[in-house]
Simulated scan of single mutants.
Amino acid sequence: MKFMLQCMSHTPLKGYFDPSADVVNEVAGCIRAVRQEVERFDPEVIYLFAPDHFNGFFLDLMPQFCIGMQATSVGDYATPVGELDVPRNVAESCAESVIGADIDLAFSYRMQVDHGFTQSLIELTGALDRYPVVPIMLNAVAPPLSTLSRARQLGIAVGNFARGQKKRVLFLASGGLSHNPPIPSIATATDREVIERLIAGRNPTSEARAARQQRTVNAARDFVAGGSVLHALNPGWDLEFMGHLCQKGWEAIDAYTNEQITAEAGASTHEVRAWVAAAAAIDAACRGSWSAKQNYYRAIPEWVAGFGSLSGSGTVQ
């Protein structure tokens, strides 16, 4: 059985506030190469680990981990609205197996996913529904957050299940690296409208979504101009983290604390728990017999992101 890992940063600012054409083309070249790898691999199922940004999950009930038995894209930023091709029987069996491994996994038969899931899916496969996809959300925006160690344990449980399915599997992670976009927090919000949006802001009007997106673009412009309070990007942190994953440095990964991540790399860097879960999944599926490589890294202020990509592969009998 063959397994592939792809971890890719995402950013909602693509096409809204871009860096120079050289950088845009450089990133596009990386994505094109990874997409070709995926097409050659031709996965029979994708396990997609990704965060949400208060578009599908809210504080009226926020799980740390949630698997979708059905999923719909909300179509934020430049991503399309539509259904993901979720194989319900596989997702249900995966949930049962993961919960049986003592991971408290929530599940949804009406999951809504945003660009955190769909941007990488579109860029690396060309469509929301080209391949069967099992979507797994990891909370990265609403403290209290699980630890990276717990995200790794989730990945192990998914990887063990996937190995037993005897299919050609792509473990895909979307999110990170260092960044700190202007996502409001219930701890500091004072405006009643903002608080209500955090608690139960599903299905906003097109005007409300456009206004939210414009606030993100404006914040990126301020960030580049140097007039922002957003956390600086941290290439050193990003490269060290990617190195730990490529080297299977699980002890080092488990040692990261949520407080350190926020302080050193920014509040939204917690999206890297998706990378940890996906890497742990291929490690478990291959019983440790796999290899990984860093494809790309650049700190891109216009996108308010340390933008990276890494790939891995392994085979088991």
Rank of each mutant, 00 (worst) to 15 (best):
K2L: 03
L5M: 11
P12S: 01
K14P: 03
F17P: 02
V23A: 00
E26K: 03
E26M: 09
E26D: 13
E26F: 09
A28N: 07
V34T: 11
R35K: 15
E37R: 13
R40W: 12
R40L: 12
P43M: 08
L48R: 09
A50R: 12
D52Y: 03
D52V: 03
F58Y: 14
F58K: 11
M62F: 04
P63M: 09
G68T: 01
A71D: 07
T72Y: 14
V74I: 14
G75F: 10
Y77C: 04
A78E: 10
T79H: 04
P80V: 13
G82A: 08
E83P: 00
D85F: 09
V86M: 08
P87W: 01
P87G: 03
A91M: 07
A95G: 00
S97G: 09
S97E: 10
V98R: 06
G100Y: 01
A101P: 02
D104E: 15
L105M: 07
D114H: 06
G116T: 03
F117L: 03
T118D: 08
L121W: 06
L121C: 08
G126Q: 11
R130I: 12
P132C: 10
V134N: 03
L138I: 15
S146A: 15
L148H: 06
L154P: 15
N160F: 05
G164I: 10
R168Y: 07
S174P: 14
G175F: 03
N180V: 04
P181W: 04
P184M: 09
P184Q: 10
V194H: 04
E196N: 13
P204K: 06
T205E: 07
Q214I: 00
R215S: 13
T216I: 12
S228P: 07
S228E: 02
V229H: 05
L230Y: 10
H231S: 15
N234T: 07
D238F: 07
E240Y: 08
M242Q: 12
H244R: 14
C246N: 04
D254L: 01
A255L: 00
E259L: 05
I261Q: 01
I261W: 02
T262Q: 02
E264G: 02
A265F: 02
A267Y: 05
A267C: 02
S268T: 01
V272K: 04
R273T: 06
A274R: 03
A277H: 08
A285L: 13
C286K: 08
W290L: 12
W290K: 08
K293L: 03
N295E: 12
Y296A: 09
P301K: 14
W303V: 07
G306R: 11
G306L: 06
F307T: 09
G308H: 08
G308L: 05
L310T: 10
G312S: 03
G312F: 06
G314W: 05
G314P: 10
G314D: 06
V316H: 12
Q317M: 10
